[in-house]
């Protein structure tokens, strides 16, 4: 079969893995964006910067305090999530009753400031972050070599995405979230503290971005602009999946990562644009996105 396609299996599966890795980050980031947009009505343009902060927090925890990867996996999302909560209290909550554009502009500005501050201290070049000892090495699967850390990233991000989906779609807390997304006034009139829920939701979405950042640190270099490069693609993924759809962002994230990987094998010239081409087609045929509900 591979001979028919004229592609060696090493290259095919190698790119498939790379696609799944990218897809894992697309999925986790677009999931956070979807949760935040659903609840806050804010397009969180600072998401890439918050992802970068997650990676940097892990790097700082390791280099300044000797805190290892596994602890950073919990601590960095908490710390960056708290920073998100601070942003929500200080700025975002004044914008909920306004058009989406204001939230987008505010968070875009915040992203520029955050990335600028990190660039002032760390320059544009990346800081290395090594793979945790337990996950070094890899396995030869016969048709390809599978590095342990990459397998971990794909598996763990899948677990995180499914856990978030379960939390939102299948639990009591999730039913509050879904209800408040539809009609916050009524949910509050039932006695639920909606402003606090909104604040915690933003913190959660930001924490999810930071978690993706920690996971990315050993794969990509930890650099101030690592999020800026990724977030544009992630927004295209969100548009394709449909803004605000939880399952949609997970499926589209992984799916488009794989599509991008295969494009690198079969038509490398298009690999950087394929997602945007798909976005344009989806926008024409299904403006609400593949999984979105038309408003």
């Amino acid at each position: 079969m591979f001979e028919l396609l004229g592609v060696p299996p090493q290259a095919l599966f190698g790119q498939l893995l790379l696609g799944l890795i990218n897809g894992a980050f697309y999925a986790m980031l677009s999931l956070g964006l979807a949760v935040i947009f659903g609840m806050l009505n804010v397009i969180n343009f600072a998401h890439g910067a918050q992802y970068m902060m997650g990676a940097f927090t892990a790097w700082m925890l390791l280099n300044f305090l000797g805190v290892n990867y596994w602890a950073a996996l919990i601590l960095a999302p908490l710390l960056v999530g708290l920073f998100g909560i601070l942003l929500e209290r200080l700025f975002l909550r004044h914008l909920y009753h306004l058009d989406h554009l204001y939230g987008l502009l505010l968070t875009f500005g915040l992203a520029l400031i955050i990335e600028g501050v990190f660039r002032k201290f760390y320059g544009s070049s990346g800081q290395p972050y090594s793979i945790p000892e337990e996950l070094t090495g890899g396995h030869n699967l016969g048709f390809m070599f599978l590095p342990n850390y990459r397998a971990w990233v794909v598996a763990f991000s899948l677990v995180v995405c499914l856990a978030v989906w379960y939390l939102i779609e299948r639990t009591k807390l999730g039913s509050y979230l879904r209800a408040a997304t539809e009609n916050p006034t009524l949910v509050q009139a039932f006695g639920i503290n909606v402003p606090r829920m909104v604040m915690l939701t933003y913190g959660f979405g930001v924490g999810l971005a930071a978690l993706a950042g920690v996971m990315a640190a050993p794969i990509y270099q930890v650099s101030p602009l690592m999020g800026a490069n990724l977030i544009i693609v992630v927004f295209a993924v969100v548009v394709i999946g449909g803004m605000g759809s939880i399952l949609g962002s997970i499926v589209t994230g992984f799916g488009l990562g794989v599509v991008e990987g295969f494009t690198k094998v079969f038509y490398p010239e298009a690999s950087n644009t394929v997602i945007f081409v798909i976005m344009a087609i989806v926008l024409v045929l299904r403006p609400a996105g593949l999984f979105g509900r038309a408003q």
């Binding site: 209800a179 009524l186 509050q188 039932f190 639920i192 503290n193």
Partner: peptide, 23 residues
Amino acid sequence: RSDAVARLGIAYCPEERGIFASL
């Protein structure tokens, strides 16, 4: 605030019924 009023023991059934479609 409305959540505090509700917690005093007032419950509301709105004219548009307010059934949550996603639940």
